[in-house]
Design a protein around this nucleic acid. Structure first.
Lengths: 264, 264
DNA sequence: CATTGTCTTCCACTCAGTGGAAACCAGTTA
DNA sequence: TAACTGGTTTCCACTGAGTGGAAGACAATG
């Protein structure tokens, strides 16, 4: 080894992945050196791999020499979870059309909410989780729904963790949160009020699949509408029912792969 | 070679990619053996790589043992071409809202049209290119637009190739097509009539960026509306202008990476 | 024309990756 | 119950793909 930071046991695959992951750590294009740093790879190694990835189209190189994730990667990934996205998309779309508010489709991924789809127009854009993005479950309406209707052990495991605070309004007391989740379970919907970002609130309902909670749809609105939020409930429930019907024939595991990974 | 199918010179990266690509060749989940076949890898090699990919979440395993592309892959890919997609999405959305018809955003990828985004409701769904999917340029309205406003050498190279026929109405005569493209260039929009699939027609306009053609937006309608298609032109042009404005400040190459690869 | 920060190429070493073969598992049939 | 079948998993000795330090090639910058 002799000063050699050879770090054995590292597979090529892991190196390739760490290169792709480097692009999550910062917005925009990266120089080779950036990639080397963020991925923890020696420059020459990074260079070789990056070149190969570029050949395959997984990365693309800009005229200025910097690298970007390539369109090929995006294409490959479009085959992921198509079932749920394709089946639900038109209904999420309808949800937006009917309410005029930013509409979301989300599932649980481990301890976080993963946004699968989102529909919004050019007018009303309260900041909200972006597609492919993750947010903590306890601060979002979709997250609370996903948690409230999840099996006990999942919910308990979640409450046992440190609950991150986003704004002054985020509910981080495990006891109170547990109580709130119980209530959500009963009333069949969840709301938040400036718990992840000031100025916006949200409301969400569950989407079931074969009896279990499968996904959640929700709306994000400016805080000014918080008091009248519940008027959207009938639409939300109607759309949820339609999505349930549309996905009923698709086996659960086919919908998204087993995104619902263990408790850690 | 002597029976040894060791096939040297094959990099690990290429093997990993060929595994991911295996999922493009067929819908749905694959067994290990399937993957081995489609990727041309020996079973044991496939097994090891697939396992590692699964650990990383790029693949996921269903209870029945079959494999699927994992949600992690999709997440990674969401960072691709975000600029264009995020910037344009609300306007494509508006396009749908204003017309009530299936709306598309597409770019050129080599010799094909690549669909970047698509907005449609649950009612009117004439079959149309899916997001992440590709179609030949000469059979779609967005494709014709992208071709008509592209630089000469790109257009010429395209016309020199064998033009695939999809329906009886597909225009496959290079001469006539060249003429049609000229006309499209003049009038500023393109249409198709059952050229890719019976029962649907389409209309599209260009979206420019720094003077060059960058993308195209279009609508797909049932053939019954073919005669009145052009009434959507004002809206299409208006939306195109808005997208141009919204993306103007973003450097071209940042928009999608250099998806516009060479002529082969 | 030094200086600094990148990117690219080289190359001898070696361990991660390899893949044939054999064991292991259901189901299914005789 | 045993033999068969189609797929999955484990083993392990061999070796060349992958490695990364170092040196060379480029820009920009002062």
């Amino acid at each position: 080894m002799a000063g050699g930071s050879r770090e054995p046991g590292r597979t090529v695959t892991s190196k390739v992945l760490s290169i792709l992951e480097a692009f999550e750590k910062s917005r925009g294009a990266l120089s080779l050196t950036d990639i080397g740093e963020k991925s923890g790879l020696p420059l020459s190694t990074a260079h070789r791999l990056v070149n190969e990835l570029t050949d395959w189209g997984l990365l693309s190189r800009e005229p200025n020499g910097r690298y970007q994730l390539g369109i090929r990667l995006w294409e490959l990934a479009q085959n992921t979870g198509r079932q749920l996205r394709d089946a639900a998309r038109p209904y999420v779309q309808d949800l937006f059309s009917l309410t005029g508010e930013t509409a979301h489709l989300a599932v649980r991924a481990g301890h976080e909410v993963l946004y699968i789809d989102r529909v919004y127009g050019s007018k009303r854009v309260p900041r909200a989780g972006r597609v492919g993005g993750r947010l903590p479950m306890h601060a979002t309406a979709v997250g609370k729904v996903l948690l409230a209707f999840e099996e006990d052990w999942v919910r308990d495991a979640y409450l046992n963790r440190q609950l991150e605070r986003h704004t002054a309004h985020t509910h981080v007391d495990p006891r109170k949160l547990a109580e709130e989740l119980g209530q959500i379970h009963e009333q069949g919907y969840a709301t938040t009020l400036e718990e992840v970002r000031l100025g916006s609130c949200s409301i969400a309902v569950p989407v079931f699949h074969t009896g279990r909670i499968g996904a959640s749809i929700g709306l994000v609105l400016p805080t000014t509408q918080a008091s009248t939020m519940t008027r959207h409930l009938p639409v939300l429930r109607g759309i949820a029912a339609q999505i349930e019907r549309a996905t009923a024939r698709i086996p659960l595991e086919t919908l998204l792969g087993s995104h619902v990974d263990g408790t850690d």
